[in-house]
Amino acid sequence: MNIFRLAGDMTHMFSVLVLLLKIHTIKSCAGVSVKTQELYAIVFATRYLDIFTSFVSIYNTFMKLVFLGSSFSIVWYMRYHKAVHRTYDREQDTFRHWFLVLSCLLLALLIHEKFTFLEVLWTFSLYLEAVAILPQLVLLQRTRNIDNLTGQYIFLLGGYRGLYILNWIYRYFTEPHFVHWITWITGLVQTLLYADFFYYYFLSWKNNKKLN
């Protein structure tokens, strides 16, 4: 474990807890894409299948439970909680995210490190995580505005991915045979997707005006 990875995990945990807290507190999910949240729930469900078979550490297991619990809770709130569901912007959140699931599944069947059930699903979860933010970014552009908590959510998500890249660089130089091309490439693609969002987020912060 290194400081970049710990900071990355904490930032990631805060991003989901901030969003869950927002939805729970103000009983609204305006501006949030349920499709992105469903994709994240699938990412965690397919990546943490080994939670019962392979024990890495208390920390690892605890964080997996936090991510699984928060992502499924957010989807539940947005889909089945009456008050919250009423604020869901169905007309604008129209990204066909099942195509993302399908293409990531096909890609995982083609490109993976080992052809085993767990390994292919793990690779699938990496590909899906890289594109999971797309419905949210599209919704953001459509609604043309962003309340500060959704902005913070995306900002923290991007930050977590950026810190993970520093973690991989650190591990590459400190651990002899630490080479995971698939992880690195998907992580880089995901971070690049956030790049333009960061640009506009920074501009709105610098000029102290609403992000649009």
Binding site: M1, H12, F55
Partner: peptide, 10 residues
């Protein structure tokens, strides 16, 4: 800390 699947990261 590496699990046998080699996936020790979240």
């Amino acid at each position: 800390e590496d699990a046998e699947t080699g996936h020790d990261e979240l």
